[in-house]
Amino acid sequence: MELSRLPGFLLRRVLKSVAVILAIVVCNFLLIHAAPGDPATVMAGQSGAADPQYMEQLRRQFGLDQPLTTQLWIYLKGVLQLDLGFSHRQQAGVAGLIMDRLPATLLLTGAAFLIAISGGVAMGALAARRVGTWADSVITVIALAFYATPLFWVGLMLVLLFSVYLEWLPSFGMSDPSLNATGLALAWDVAQHLVLPAVTLGLFYLAVYARLTRATMLEVADQDFVKTARAKGVPEGRVLRAHVLRNALLPVITFAGIQAGQLVGGSILVETVFAWPGIGRLAFEALLARDYQVLMGVFFITSVMVVLFNLLTDLLYALIDPRVEVA
């Protein structure tokens, strides 16, 4: 990778990313407003007053009486100013609500990603090295089982086993408010609450990485440069690490960069099952309340994260494989 080309590459990617994010914002806005139902009716019902005058006042207050194109232009100007609107349900700014919940989601998805990528690569490498043996068969069966099992069922079974029967781990929430813990005690409490949801979210992707690593390692192992290294007498362990595994990680990194962004959206189900206070649960609550501003805000933040993860993946790709140029 030539460092002189890096600024131009980053500039082009940033401009493309901004265009992609704006297109996603427009699509999300149109799709959400195409949904049946009147948000003013929901807001009036929540406040206990559903007379026509009050509903008309709500429509004027939140701009629902404006044409759709006018509403879209107002929303786009707000997004460009990092103003994601106001939540009628929680009576607070959408940006503030998301920023309060985002650290919990990043903690959950980050832990799940580490579990998935480290465990998946390790299992896939072991299966490729022991191909055709009982270890390969066991890893393959386990990976297929994790891949085919619904996340909510895995979460509920983990709660029954480790929380109800064994009583080793807490089942719901991010921390125990009755402890009033601070410092290391609070960190330990959060870590205990994190185990079950992170494992639940990570198991599905662990299975994907295990299968992908195994397949790519077996494919790379048949390449001529690997055979040449073995013919020169390079130790088998070094061949596997420096030649086979390193080249096999390239498609894994590509897939991981895509999945890292999708983990944030995929955490909605896990956060709901475990009552984890992240943006996934915030989006679910907003969907039930027809809080369009919060939904669009969550979609916007997750879209930005997906684009950023893809940009980081491209840079990491070039760092790992010198043959890949940023241009």
Rank of each mutant, 00 (worst) to 15 (best):
H88G: 13
G78V: 11
G45T: 00
G45C: 00
G63R: 02
L64G: 05
A44W: 03
R89V: 15
D51Q: 04
Q57D: 13
I74K: 13
R89F: 07
A49V: 15
G96W: 01
W73N: 11
P67L: 06
G63F: 08
M43V: 06
T69Q: 07
L72Y: 05
M55R: 14
I74V: 09
R59G: 10
T69P: 02
G93F: 00
V79N: 11
L84R: 00
Q91A: 12
G93C: 01
H88Y: 14
G48V: 09
L102W: 07
D83Q: 14
Q81G: 05
L76R: 04
L58R: 08
A44M: 02
Q71E: 01
I98S: 02
Y54T: 13
F86L: 05
L97S: 04
L102P: 11
Q46L: 13
L68S: 04
D83L: 03
G63E: 04
A92F: 03
I74C: 00
D100L: 03
G93A: 10
T41Q: 12
Q46C: 03
M99D: 07
G93T: 05
Y75I: 10
G63H: 03
T69Y: 02
S87H: 08
Q61Y: 01
I98H: 01
M55T: 09
D65E: 08
D100W: 00
R60M: 13
L102C: 06
D100P: 00
H88V: 15
M99S: 15
